[in-house]
Structure formats: C-alpha cells, structure tokens
Write a protein that binds this DNA or RNA. Sequence first.
DNA 1: CTGAAAGCGCTTACAG
DNA 2: CTGAAAGCGCTTACAG
Lengths: 344, 344
Amino acid sequence: MKAGSETTATLHDVARAAGVSIKTVSNVINGYPHIRPETRERVEKAIDQLHYQPNRAARSLRSGRTDMIGLIVPDLRNPYFAELADDVMRAARERGFSVLIEQFDLDRDSELAALRDAHLRGLDGILHSVLTLEQGDAALLERVPVPMVLLGERLFESSRDHVTMRNTEGAQAATAHLLGLGRRRILALGSHPSEEFGSPGLRLQGYADALAAAGVPLDDSLVVPVDLWHRADGADAMRAVLDTGVQFDGIVAFNDSLALGALRVLLERGVRVPEDVAVIGFDDLDETRYSLPALSTINPGRSEIARTAVDLLVARIGGADAEPPREVFTDFSLVERESTAATR
Amino acid sequence: MKAGSETTATLHDVARAAGVSIKTVSNVINGYPHIRPETRERVEKAIDQLHYQPNRAARSLRSGRTDMIGLIVPDLRNPYFAELADDVMRAARERGFSVLIEQFDLDRDSELAALRDAHLRGLDGILHSVLTLEQGDAALLERVPVPMVLLGERLFESSRDHVTMRNTEGAQAATAHLLGLGRRRILALGSHPSEEFGSPGLRLQGYADALAAAGVPLDDSLVVPVDLWHRADGADAMRAVLDTGVQFDGIVAFNDSLALGALRVLLERGVRVPEDVAVIGFDDLDETRYSLPALSTINPGRSEIARTAVDLLVARIGGADAEPPREVFTDFSLVERESTAATR
DNA sequence: CTGAAAGCGCTTACAG
DNA sequence: CTGAAAGCGCTTACAG
C-alpha cells in the first residue's frame, strides 16, 4: 500500500488503516449509532486520508438498491419535459436519489422500447411520462421489474400509480376565462380527433363544457386538429386557419408551444393580441412570461406533480409495493398575463 | 422454482433450464463467438422463458464498468443545456451508454459539490459543463475518480480533455455580420467585466476584434454587462439601456436567451427589428426559429460538441487514459434570419 | 467449445 | 460495541 497511490481504497484498506474490522467501517459509513466516539473518529480519519468512496456496484449487489430512479420522457428539447426533468431531479435529490433520464422520441415503438430496456433492471424505480401507451400495453407495464409511477393522462387501467393534472377542468377554466372577456368565437387549438381520452380529448371536453355552461354553441370549424404540439405546428395551424378566413376572437391552445407558435403568426399577420384575439395556453412554461405579449396560461402544477410522483415512487421502493395503485390529481391555476388582458 | 414466479431469474436459473454451465450462458449474453448454434438456441430460449435480465450491479462489480456516464450541467430550465443534454444522450446511446444527469444550480459551491459527489464513483465517466471552475480547482478535477471531459470554455490548465466552440471567432463573425449591414453603433449585450476569459470575455474580444477590423472605434457605453444570461436578464438590461437614451442600431447578444429578452422589450417599446436595430444571438436554440422576428444567431455546433465529447470520453474509458489531455474546437456557423435581414 | 472455481467489494445476520 | 464469515450475481482466467 503506497501512500498517495492512485488505486482506489476499499473497505478493507480503511479497516486496516483504522485498526478495526470492515463491519465497523461499514457501520460508521452507514450511520449506525452505538459506535464509540473514538472509534468513529479513527475510522473517519482513515476514510479521509485514503479518499475512500464506497463502491456503489458492490453496495447495490448486496443491498439490492441503487438509489437511482429512471425518468422516461419524450424529449428534452420540449421545454415542458425539460422543466419536468428539472423538477423531478430536485425532488429525487431531496429523497436521496439520482435520476437517469431516457428519451423516447415521440413514437410508439420508441416508447415501448424504453420500457423494455434492460437498464431498468439497474434502477430502484421508474417515472414514465406516458405518450402513446394504451390498454393493450398494460401487460408490458406489469413486466417492468421495478416499481413504476406514470405521469400524464391515464389512458387505461393498470396496476401502476399515476399522477396527472385535472385536464378537463383546466381547459374549462381557460375557456371560461375567455368567455368572461366577452369572447364568443373561441378556437380550440390542438385537438386529436381520433383520441377521446388523453390530454387532447380531455382538454377538448373542458372546452366544450365551458361553452355549454355559457350557452355558446360549439362550432366545429373552430376546433383545430394539430398533430404534434410543437411551436412550428402551432404556427402552421394558425396560418392555415387564417387562410380559411374563419372568424375568431379567442384561442384556447392545448399547450404553450402551440400558443406561442400561433402568437407569432398572429403578430406577423397584423392581428392584435389581445385586442382582436385573446390567447391562452397550457403548461406555464418559463418562457410564457417573456413572449410578446406575455402569454396567459394554465399552470398545471408541474413541481407538485414531480414531487408527488417521486414520493409515491419512493414509498413503493420502500416496500409499499402491495398496496393498490393510486391515482393522484394535482391542482392547477390560471395565470393571467397580457395575452388575455381586458380590452373593452 | 415456480413457473411464472415473480422472483427474478439469475444466470444459474438460466443455466439450469438450458442444461449448461453459467459460463456458457454468460458467453451467449456477451456475444462471444464459438458457441454451438444449438447450444446458443437452447440458452436463448431459456432466457426468454425466464425473462432473464442480467443484474447490472453484479456485472459492474465484476467488470468494473457501469455503462453509465454522468452529465453535470447548470440547469435544464435553460434551453441550451436541455438541448445539449438531448444531444449528449443521443450520442451516448449510440456508444452503448446511459446518462445520469446532475444539475448544479448556477452557483460555485453547487458546481464544486457536484464534482465531489459520491455518485461519480458509480459512473464510467463524466461530462462536465464548466461554469465557474478556475485554476484553483484543477486539483479537485484531478481527484475525480473517473475519466472526465470538460465542456465550455477552458478557464485554466488541467489534465482533462476539453471541447468547446471558437467563442472569439463566433462573436467576431456575428459582429462583422452587423457591420456588413452598415450598422456602426452595435451593442454588446452580456459582458462580464470581471472575467477576462470564459465565454463572456472571449465573445467580447471577438466583438472588439470585428470593430477594430472595420475601423469602428469601441464605445464603452455600448458594452452592456449582464450577470446572468437568462431571458429576463436580457429584457431588464434592454430596458435599462433604452432608458439611458444611448443610441444604437445593432445588438450582438452573447446568447440567444439574452437576445430574445431584448427582442421582446424592443418590440414593446416600438423599436423595429431589423429596421431600427438588427439583432443577433448565440446558441441557435430551437426557438430562435419561431421568435418574432426569427432570430439570427451563431450556431455553435452543439450536436458536434456533444458527439465529440462523448467520443473522447468513451476513448478514455476504453483505456486511452494515459494520453495527454486534448483540446478540441468545433466549427460554428452563422445563421441569418429575419432579425438581421437587409433593410437598406 | 464448455465447465468448475475464484473473487469483485460491499452488507447483513450471527456471535460474542 | 465489534468481529469473522457468508453471499449478493456476475465475469474471467484457468483447465480440459
């Protein structure tokens, strides 16, 4: 054993240096009580001198835990998921977990592949942000060999916990907000006609509910399907709508990216926001504060979603694995900014 | 051994089911040649039936590898780092590695803490996006127990590989572009007066170089310090500049977020872009395509930075650990969009 | 081409 | 309060 050697010290090296058994060193490291102060001190000194850091693979092999959770999300270029990842990492860290992120690229095959990935076996648990999973995939979810919590809309029954916002109520609040400004021809931007459930379907439902409650008939020409919810798609859809000549005085966009894309086109075409058209989005992305005009939006409580999901997962990891799956809805709030300021 | 048992199969279970030794199973899994086809087939069948997945902790303990690399970045709310993380994950995956992301929250203590984190020991290598590290921290970098590649400006000498863009040349190109449009009073937005090196210092140098080359004297009142480079900071700085009454006809913002924040304030105040003021940023964030007007910017070759850094790291992990540290500069390009369109 | 055995570095009953 | 020993599930020389 050379002083200053580059080779990594093990528990045995520390034990030898401190003149105790490896059990005692392990006890000190893992914070067990009932160790004589002078023993503890000697061990800690040896740890410092040798720059000892436990071998995580050995610890995991023995304990069966890795203190890592996986976060499976569509992609981090989408600011919603980047901000979600940030929130999840903060919540996980508070609970003593690191986060391994896996992207899956917006298509179904890629999403399924992520759930079959062998890496899952090396994680204590998985947070999965659902995009295309459906009832037929429930069996696949059962086969994931670790605890798992789903984020986003529950499209199906499964044995897994699940955390989501109140999509329908959020969209209803957004629509009611525009109705309260006196708007009557409100575009619903981002529907997915083929999906009854999932965020698009639920948000469309909320839109319809709000109209019904206000006695405003639903005009199908105001419901605009947009397949992907990126900014470019919102811009494209907005151009198409303007080109048809359909009249409207408000927009409920089903996410902020769509709203921001639409905003850009409206301004480009000389449509004034909010004077001519009031616009509200969904997600409360950081950048909605800085768009021109600043975008009103539904804050889905993303931090709370992250915290709740991590807590549920940690509980499962901690042994609450037999309990029935839980479904948690988080609170949302309406954020009023310039794009829906009163103008009349 | 119950059929359909929930307990996880091990190599021994597979070996027993296939009637071979665990060595043979291991050989099949790790793709060694020279296995009789029928043996391989029997083993593969047993693996399928038992849903066998290797225990990664055991594999790591034995092999000394985890097939995971760490990515240490300031924070994912910043779109630059979210897009970088995306690029790094794609590059890593191609090389067979997963990515564990660690954020460090923009302050020095947090950045240093990330480098001391015990989790590093469980990774095959580290990619670290430098924010505040300086010469005095070189010793700390030596102590990181795994291969490491630094991203971003090299502020100091160390024994680690390093990948960055040509900051000075990029800023020079951006400034020259505005000069080429006939602009003469060009704001430099985002300087850090106390830092001579690092991105802010190098970009300011490029700005100064371009002015000098064009014979335009540098006016200190046009060099605007901005501490943080978030959109809100760009907006605040822009308001402050407009309030002083300083005249200008161009802006070189030291990153896109600053540019986007400034853009918002300019439009709010009725300043026309690019007619009154031409604006160019730095980073080529996805959203610069969709701002109003679309933002010209310097594309730093982020994907190439990510790929290069991952490749260097993988080479170190693969044993090229004795070679002297390499410094790699990636190519940038100037992306012309509406915010610097010719108007005269 | 395949097998028996050692050992990676921990944690955890089991003793004392 | 501390020690000696087993064993987590792999990979890897070493034999044959």
